[in-house]
Amino acid sequence: MKRIPPAVTQAIAVTCLWAFTLVTLAILLFIIVYILIQGLPGISWEFLTQAPESMGRRGGIFPMIVGTFMVAGLAVLIAAPIGIATAIYLTEYTREGKFTFIVRFGADCLAGIPSIIYGLFGFVFFAIALGMGLSVVSGALTLALMILPTIVRTAEEAIRAVPAAYREASYGLGSTRWQMVTRVVLPLALPGICTGVVLSLGRSISETAAVMLTAGSALRMPHSLSDSTRTLALHFYILSREGLSMDKAYATASVLILLILALNLFAYWLMRQVTRRMG
């Protein structure tokens, strides 16, 4: 058998791999551009600020925008303090051992549970067992559980990235542990922690299956946390699935994509702050 020269195999392999990479990037670009081209013309001030008419065939998406931010915002408000506190405990207050192992295992398992299971759980637990009904608060609590592991993980990484020497310096100057954490570690880890929180907000906004089963799909404006609401992602799903209006579906999808783009750019910017501060 004749041996193919290594340089040739390398050229073939690298070409294939680069092709994979380019194909993926092309798909991403295609999705974003396609949705935006079809949807941007449908976005207007009225579309963003008016209520939908006849099931969403006409009118705007204002109640969905409000509902989305209520559900996703509340989810983050609940999950962020818990997640950050957990991360602080795991990194600053305990040594690696059984306890950290169990907590991390729990968080990792939570991270792997599919959103539809979260939906089922939120439905029987928050909506029925706790009597919250299909509502903003049921949806938010369900999403909070879902994003908790991400927040713990990213906050832990951000806190660990703070050099140990700063901790010793702070102790040497007579600080208690809590003073060291709040005055030295957290301010330095803040951009990294925020990155995780922003990405989790994005994930909450994108989520459909879990909110469908817990927050419901009411078209009207949610006036309180116990009202049912329909998020943007779910509205988009219903519009396209039931063939109500393709134009409105594209426009809604564009709003979603722009939101996610903005959040990702913000997270990327925050991440660069981290490298600048620590470097």
Binding site: P163, A165, Y166, A169, Y171, G172, G174, T176, Q179
Partner: peptide, 17 residues
Amino acid sequence: AQLRRKVGMVYAVPVPL
């Protein structure tokens, strides 16, 4: 914390916060 104020320590490598 009080003790570390009374016994002030300077490390080998300077670590300005």
